[in-house]
Simulated scan of single mutants.
Amino acid sequence: MATELERVRELVEPIASDLDLDLYDVERRSKVLRITIDTRAGSDDGISLDTLSLATRLISRELDHEDPISSAYTLEVTSPGLERPLRTPAHFQREIGKDITVRLTGHAVAEGESRRLDGKLVAADDTTATVLTTAGEERTIDIDAVDKARTVFDWSPKPKPGKGPGNTKNKQSKNPQKSNKEKQQS
């Protein structure tokens, strides 16, 4: 027999699919049932508030009709955000190529190794993930040994167009007369 969360997943997946979304996660914390939906893998766009609102109404109606949760709960339908948690093998597989931070469980760390990894996720399968650390070494970890992991978003400001190290335009002097005098002296 399916657990309550498995049943919720079965009910929500077709709704997400109809909206051209992925069901990212289903979790229950205390009295909150959190359903996390996301755009399809590879999409650069996020979920609009209108889409999130529509998904919430459809999911709420389906859960009210089917009543898969035996106790009282508060429904929360959300997106995973820019810095999204990585809890399942599918989460790791979806985020290959992105910067991540990982904290391993204490028993999973060999002597001399750090419990924390920061770097680029370069590979993932059903049991392991490989991280190219900021130190330049590849480290393969068991996903079951992950205490906490998430993607890392670069919050630094982006350079303005025409500014920055890639700009090769010749800068002209603000004083054109001086510029002309310099040309005559050459």
Results as ranks from 00 to 15, higher is better:
H91M: 02
P89T: 04
I37P: 00
L63R: 07
N175W: 05
S173Y: 05
A108N: 14
G119H: 08
L49Q: 06
G119T: 04
V32M: 06
S179W: 09
A41F: 03
R61C: 11
E27V: 14
S30N: 15
G166H: 11
D50V: 06
F153W: 14
R84T: 01
G42V: 01
D38Q: 02
K31S: 12
A16K: 00
K183H: 06
I35P: 01
A135Q: 14
H65D: 10
A149W: 06
L52K: 02
A129S: 01
E27Y: 06
V109D: 03
E6C: 10
D125T: 04
A55M: 00
L104Y: 05
E113H: 13
A129H: 00
N175K: 10
W155L: 15
G112D: 12
P85C: 00
T168W: 12
N175S: 10
P161C: 08
E27R: 12
Q93P: 05
V102K: 06
K163N: 14
I100M: 04
K148W: 15
R116A: 12
G136K: 07
D142I: 13
R29A: 08
K158N: 14
D38E: 00
I59A: 02
D125N: 11
P176M: 01
L86A: 04
K171W: 15
E83R: 11
T51L: 13
D125P: 10
E27F: 12
P176T: 12
R40D: 00
V131I: 15
T3E: 14
S48W: 04
